[in-house]
Design a protein around this nucleic acid. Structure first.
Lengths: 215, 215
DNA sequence: GTGACACTACACCGTGCAGTGTAGTTAAGT
DNA sequence: ACTTAACTACACTGCACGGTGTAGTGTCAC
């Protein structure tokens, strides 16, 4: 034991290289999102990451901690993607419809690498019941909503929209644009890209009709 | 072997009483929805149903088949609930807003016994990846949407709404009213009833604003 | 060289759990 | 009384998988 660092759990973890760490996280994320937590074996993760099972344990301690890391990372990138999309599309807006469409599109395209936004939510929802730590991090899932709500409030001040309850409006926007996978679409059955685009456009239009100022 | 009946799988199942069958299905449904499929042991189901584990297997063959039965049953009741709600609230409408609110409310209250509509969807989504039979039955989840779409089209004909794409509109209605549990709410953390009510009302109002005829 | 470290390969343990086999009990049908 | 079916209790198998221990290899630093 030499280059070991102790973490809160009392486990001694290896320092390790960022590359391997990322490989493991990537493999775990892919499998967790596709197969679910329980059905994914650590052996499978190790194999996919081209790493010995022992290394996985040396890096992350146990399966729960690994899941936690995966979720934290995914949540982090998700939030930065949203930040970026807000900066790119929801500031200095002239054509509101076009901007909202671009916004929704850029999120649904980028998302979390190749992984699904909704798959992540499902994963967290499923495991949160059994992992208190996850439940704590769960609020983070809501933070993007808050930021969107802020933007909508700003649009309201500019007279572009009528938004009495920004949080609710933000929920409605995401509900209308991000739910292709809710009804109908199931794990593995990716909806076609065309379909996603159509839904985003229709969702944004409905949202604007619902929240635009009336004559 | 006497009163045995053969099923497609080649397994020989017991005839059994409807009461026991229902007890097992109920226990399994509760545990599957609350804990997920993998985390639920057949022993736990048997215990909760006050039945020997052997009986569970004699009735349903194996865990997969049991899950399938649970989902079929839940889907069945869900569909009948929707039918009922449509009949009760979406025919002979004078106050559209009130009717839609009553409709959404009656579904979210009744749902599937005490179980969650969304929990069922999550369950199916999660296991569909690994159970082809489930994926087949999955389309049934969409059928309520179709019926709602029909009603919306009817409203459009009456001049109450403007609905170019009924299926999309139905998706929007459910998205707006049924997503309390999507963002934020997680398994086990039941949103308060007040909150649910608020969301239903706000969702319906937004829907109507989005789809009402304009002057 | 000689450590120190990262890593693999592999054997290994414990356990939870799906599924089965079976003997014995109860109740009903005849 | 005899049979038959439903059911329980319980023991038991087999396996998958989480997690650990360890011996050995490559590699860099000094």
């Amino acid at each position: 034991m030499a280059d070991m660092t102790v973490t809160d759990g009392g486990k001694t973890l290896r320092q390790g290289s960022a590359v391997k760490r990322e490989a493991i996280l990537g493999a775990a994320r892919g499998l967790f999102l596709a197969e679910g937590f329980e059905r994914t074996s650590v052996d499978a993760i190790a194999a996919l990451a081209q790493v010995s099972k022992r290394t996985v344990y040396d890096y992350f301690g146990d399966k729960r901690a690994l899941l936690l890391s995966v979720v934290e990372q995914a949540l982090g990138t998700l939030m930065s993607v949203v930040d970026r999309a807000i900066a790119d599309h929801l500031t200095e807006v002239q054509d509101l419809e076009a901007s909202l469409i671009a916004f929704a599109r850029s999120i649904s395209e980028t998302a979390i690498g190749s992984a699904d936004y909704v798959a992540l939510i499902r994963l967290v929802s499923n495991e949160a019941a059994n992992l208190p730590e996850l439940r704590a991090h769960n609020w983070a899932m809501v933070e993007p909503e808050v930021k969107v709500a802020d933007r909508l409030a700003a649009f309201a001040e500019q007279g572009l929209l009528v938004v009495p309850d920004p949080r609710m409006a933000a929920d409605h926007l995401t509900a209308l644009t991000m739910t292709p996978s809710m009804t109908g679409a199931t794990a593995g059955i990716t909806t076609t890209n065309d379909e996603t685009q159509r839904r985003i456009v229709a969702g944004v239009r409905a949202f604007i009709r619902a929240y635009e100022p009336r004559g």
